[in-house]
């Protein structure tokens, strides 16, 4: 690390195996090394042929514990192909944020893992949401802790019965899965 800090840089296109000071180890190809920020930009998955999608890592060079040289590759960035569409980026971010918000609503706060898995299972067939630690199904049937069929309340008898059955089934399924593991 000391050597790099003193002016050595990583050559673009190098395939490196890197160990970080946090104990992480990975392999990647150097996209660039940015001197001012001391950031090494790498891409993973070049060799695996996992398609055009890569994992990009921006790693502070001073957190590299050790690395080894695996080979030299082509410069991964072709300047002639470096196009960016700001609208696309904005749209992507907006959709990602929306998705994150939607996902966040699906995560119960302060609930057990079992409750969350029950929630996820119920959500596959019924519209569900969290009301604190209570699962609300179809906006009328409430399943509160400990999420047993007996704890299903509210809703029309048919809906109530339906939720109970699904809950029972999912509980069994989760149990069997756990036993299987």
């Amino acid at each position: 690390m000391e050597a790099q800090a003193q002016g050595e840089e990583f050559a673009v296109g190098c395939m490196l195996s890197i160990k970080t000071t946090l104990g992480e180890e990975f392999q990647g190809q150097v996209i660039t090394f940015d001197r001012p920020s001391n950031l090494l930009v790498l891409q993973e998955g070049v060799k695996s042929g996992a398609g055009p999608k890569r994992n990009i890592r921006l790693l502070k060079a001073n957190y590299i514990k050790e690395f080894s040289f695996l080979g030299q590759g082509e410069d991964p960035l072709d300047v002639n192909k470096c196009f960016l569409d700001l609208n696309t980026l904005q749209a992507r971010e907006e959709s990602a944020i929306r998705q994150a918000e939607a996902d966040a609503e699906r995560i119960g706060v302060g609930v057990t893992a079992e409750a969350q898995s029950l929630f996820d299972a119920l959500s596959k067939t019924l519209p569900v949401r969290w009301d604190k630690t209570t699962i609300v199904v179809m906006n009328e049937v409430r399943v509160s802790s400990p999420y047993l069929p007996e704890s299903v309340t509210g809703g029309t008898p048919a809906a109530n019965e339906r939720v109970r059955k699904v809950l029972e089934f999912e509980k069994k399924r989760l149990q069997s899965r756990n036993l299987g593991q």
Partner: peptide
């Protein structure tokens, strides 16, 4: 505070 940023499944324009 920054050590590393990992973005998964990125499409680099240069990749095609």
């Amino acid at each position: 505070d920054l050590v590393q940023v990992v973005a998964k499944g990125v499409l680099l324009p240069s990749n095609g």
